[in-house]
Design a protein around this nucleic acid. Structure first.
Lengths: 107, 107
DNA sequence: TCATTAATTCAATGATTGTTGTATTATCGA
DNA sequence: TCGATAATACAACAATCATTGAATTAATGA
């Protein structure tokens, strides 16, 4: 994770609809979700959703797999964990902190 | 952490300069840093920096303490950890995941 | 008190972003 | 092959954001 990637990922998440989409995909887990299901679940216009999914994909936070005429979107946990690590890197000059159990996902 | 707080925090971080400022404060730890030091260290105009620090403070990611004519800014680790938790909440429908050691800071 | 330094505020301007409507590509099933 | 569905692409406009310069507030020390 470098600075540009981090800013890109944060920008992608810094939006109500995209954050909802991403969290829905995090909850969905490895099965993923299709744009249609997401659009119904979150009540967003399909072209708007498409735009937002593209943003998330471009930021590396979700992956796309084609299955027939459906697309399966999935949260990219590795990238999310990389972002989280980037935020806390070299915390407190490396000396003072304790490390704790977290809710990081290893799917 | 609720949705609005999360979007607010993510928006605050989704910017090259503010991300640098925040990470510098994370590294600085409990001692914190003054705007002057940050401005020199990151080569940003003081009024621009002031604007960005206000954004970070408004998002709850940094705290401000006055010491004479200096202000001490510090990263608010609890809020950052709350944000991280929000992103991964109910991950994989609560069933499939393992929890790992992370780099979360407990200052 | 007065000059200096720390930091912020405000208005203005240029740049970026979000949403919508319309059109397009591609796949499926009859 | 043809109609229906899944999904994306594109252009346009409104709304929001970032930066700058100038002015302001507040604290320090001679």
């Amino acid at each position: 994770m470098n600075e540009d990637q981090a800013v890109s990922a944060l920008s992608a998440l810094a939006h109500t609809q995209r954050l909802r989409v991403f969290r829905a995909l995090v909850v969905a887990g490895p099965e993923g979700l299709t744009p249609s299901v997401l659009a119904d679940q979150l009540d967003v216009a399909r072209n708007t959703l498409s735009f937002h999914l593209k943003e998330l994909a471009h930021a590396g936070l979700v992956t796309i797999e084609q299955q027939g005429r459906n697309l399966i979107y999935r949260a990219e946990y590795a990238h999310m964990n990389g972002l989280i690590g980037y935020l806390t890197e070299h915390c407190c000059q490396g000396g003072v902190c304790e490390v704790s159990e977290s809710t990081q996902c290893n799917c």
